[in-house]
C-alpha cells in the first residue's frame, strides 16, 4: 500500500514529469492562458494516460517488440479521438479554445513516455497508479501556471473577477504579457528554480567550474 502511495505521490514534485523529466512541456505551456482551459486539458490528459497505460499494460505480452511504438501510438490516438469528440459534444467553447492541443496529446511525450518506460514492463495495477501519478503531476503544474497567468493577466480566476481592473474602477492593472507566449516560459522557468531551491538534490552540476570559484571551493 505504501508502495502504491509512493507511485502516486512521487511524480507530484520530486519526479514531476514537466519540471524534472521535461515530458509533455509543449501542451503544458500552450493551454495555460486561463485556469479553465488548464483544468480541461489536465482532465483530458489524465484520462488518456490512465486508459492508455491500462490497455497497453494489459496487452503487453502480445505486442511484437518491433512494432510496439506503432501499436502504442494507435491506441493513444484512438483514445484521443474519443476524448476530442466528447469534448466537442459537451464543452464546445472550451474545445475551441484548446484548438489543436487536444489532438496533440497523441504526440505528447508524457503519455508515450510512460507507456514505453513503465506500462510495457509492469502489470496493470502499478501501471495505472503510475499513469495517475504522472497525470496528476502534470495537472499540478498546469493548474499553478494557469492560475498565475489568469490572475495576473485578467485579474480573475475561472472567469470570476478577484482583482478589479482599472477599466472597471478598481486598482488592478492587468499585465498583458501574462497572456502572451513568453510568460509561460518565464513562469515554468521560475517554478523550476523554486523547486530546485527547495530540493537541492535536483540541481544540475555546473558544466564548467569558474576560475574564481576554484580557490574558494
Amino acid at each position: 500500500m505504501a508502495n502504491a502511495l509512493t507511485r502516486i505521490v512521487s511524480p507530484l514534485i520530486d519526479q514531476n514529469p514537466v519540471t524534472r523529466q521535461i515530458l509533455g512541456v509543449c501542451s503544458a505551456l500552450a493551454v495555460t492562458t486561463s485556469l479553465d482551459t488548464a483544468l480541461m486539458m489536465s482532465l483530458a490528459l489524465t484520462t488518456v494516460i490512465c486508459l492508455a497505460s491500462a490497455i497497453i499494460s494489459l496487452i503487453r505480452h502480445h505486442i511484437p517488440h518491433v512494432i510496439r511504438l506503432i501499436v502504442q501510438i494507435t491506441i493513444i490516438a484512438s483514445l484521443v479521438i474519443v476524448i476530442d469528440e466528447l469534448m466537442r459534444a459537451f464543452a464546445f467553447e472550451l474545445s475551441r479554445a484548446l484548438s489543436v492541443f487536444v489532438g496533440l496529446i497523441v504526440t505528447n511525450c508524457l503519455v508515450l513516455g510512460r507507456a514505453e518506460a513503465f506500462a510495457m514492463r509492469n502489470p496493470v495495477r502499478p501501471s495505472v497508479l503510475d499513469a495517475l501519478g504522472n497525470g496528476l503531476g502534470y495537472s499540478l503544474i498546469l493548474i499553478v501556471v494557469g492560475s498565475i497567468r489568469e490572475l495576473l493577466g485578467q485579474g480573475s480566476l475561472l472567469g470570476v473577477t478577484l482583482l478589479t481592473p482599472v477599466e472597471d474602477g478598481g486598482w488592478f492593472q492587468p499585465l498583458g504579457l501574462m497572456q502572451l507566449a513568453p510568460a509561460a516560459f518565464f513562469i515554468i522557468g521560475l517554478l523550476i528554480w523554486a523547486i530546485r531551491s527547495a530540493r537541492a538534490d535536483q540541481v544540475e552540476p555546473a558544466q564548467y567550474q569558474l576560475a574564481g570559484d576554484r580557490g574558494r571551493g
Binding site: 518565464f186 523550476i192 523547486i195 552540476p205
Partner: peptide, 9 residues
C-alpha cells in the same frame, strides 16, 4: 537552482 533546465526556459 537556475543551472540547466530553468535557465533554458
Amino acid at each position: 537552482g537556475v543551472q540547466g533546465l530553468a535557465s533554458a526556459f
